[in-house]
Write a protein that binds this DNA or RNA. Sequence first.
DNA 1: TGGAATATATGACTCTACTCATAAATGAGT
DNA 2: ACTCATTTATGAGTAGAGTCATATATTCCA
Lengths: 242, 242
Amino acid sequence: MDTSSKAGKQAGAKSAKREHPQTGGRRDRNKREKVARITAAARTLFHAKGYTKTTTQEVAEAADIGAGTLFLYAKSKEDLLILVFKDEMSQLIEEVYGTIRKNASLLDQTESLFDGFIEYHRRDVVIARALIRELSFSGNPGRRKDVLTIPEAIIEKLVHFVSAARARDEIRADIDPAEAARCLFAIYYQQLQTWLGTYVSHSAFKQNMHVLLKFVIDGMSVGVIRKTEPSRNKRASRTGKR
Amino acid sequence: MDTSSKAGKQAGAKSAKREHPQTGGRRDRNKREKVARITAAARTLFHAKGYTKTTTQEVAEAADIGAGTLFLYAKSKEDLLILVFKDEMSQLIEEVYGTIRKNASLLDQTESLFDGFIEYHRRDVVIARALIRELSFSGNPGRRKDVLTIPEAIIEKLVHFVSAARARDEIRADIDPAEAARCLFAIYYQQLQTWLGTYVSHSAFKQNMHVLLKFVIDGMSVGVIRKTEPSRNKRASRTGKR
DNA sequence: TGGAATATATGACTCTACTCATAAATGAGT
DNA sequence: ACTCATTTATGAGTAGAGTCATATATTCCA
């Protein structure tokens, strides 16, 4: 069985005798239905009782499958958590990205993006905690691709923001958007964990995030030279940025 | 019971009738001995069999205590991991810090510090993985202080480096060493997790670390103006830095 | 349609982290 | 030394995640 999304091992010109990787067959449909039932049941129970207090038995019952069957779809209880939330996370990223003003400053855009994620996690901090924990250290190799998709998607959005900021000379021309994006993401992720690990309050977290993101972005901004004025100014910039 | 180091609930002018928080008594000595036996046994077994394959029963037996007694000293198996390695980590930080050239560049110093930690974790990546996982999301509130000690100690060292770099005009005067340190730490920690989560190879990890640390430090360096030459240069810097 | 090949389902079972009622040990006051 | 309050120790017991031999379902091909 394989719930890690990678489109049925691509039915190319393979040689093996029998293969049943159809996308419309009854078997496949059953599988999809079952995954849907499992994720729905698990999501409901996790939110209602919390992750740790929900037993895999309960999830299996609610999904109307055998106790052992569950582990054909999720290798472990933690893996189940990823199975349940990975799509929701990807969707969230796109949704939040869609709400962000294209003409805002890089700092504002970055903070808005992260704020969107943070508000989402705030709806159920306990689950967020377990989820981020698992996403950071997923033990199931088969799920690696799914897990990596999430930070990659976030970084992709950040690259857009940084590139745009560079194009409008908000930051220096020598800034590599990919590096900048990974850097901003690292700060977000580490701070997020500090928050979810209940080491700091929500407000302190937001405050820290702001300070550190500003720190990095200021580092990209200082010393910018407008294309229109080839020389003359000594160092400039640092103005009007929030 | 309380294995989280905080010196016997400070015997101040409290009112409670009986208190036995002595430091030299037989009770206290027994406790210390037991903790020592437990950590020694656990460390040995973890390295020999790996963390997951080692059972708490085995640790209890090796430490010559009852199975239930173990949980008087560590609230959970994960907590045991922290109990075992927290002191080793603190010691490591000091040791590595001691080996670093005081006149090296900020980037070199930062990388050397992190490299020291990385090499340590490399000796047993599986345990490192479990340990960092736990340190990031420790579930035992009583251990919070111990856990926080570690990043704080690292950040403290980074503050030293950044302050010194600022003092010698390697970075701009307006840089806040505390912010810079937390920023560098965030990158280290997030990248470390990516490595330990087996999402990237060791070499890719080192490479990424270098790139991102350089990115941030360059952001602090660009636009520096030497105190000795009050004006004149337009933006300068960016030279000779590695 | 029969039936071989393969994929999926199941729940009894195992294994182990963790709990808890009970017992033992310790320290302070007398 | 004796008493008693409090702390610490213990291992049998519990709960729940994860396994596996067996059973069932699906697809392919003749």
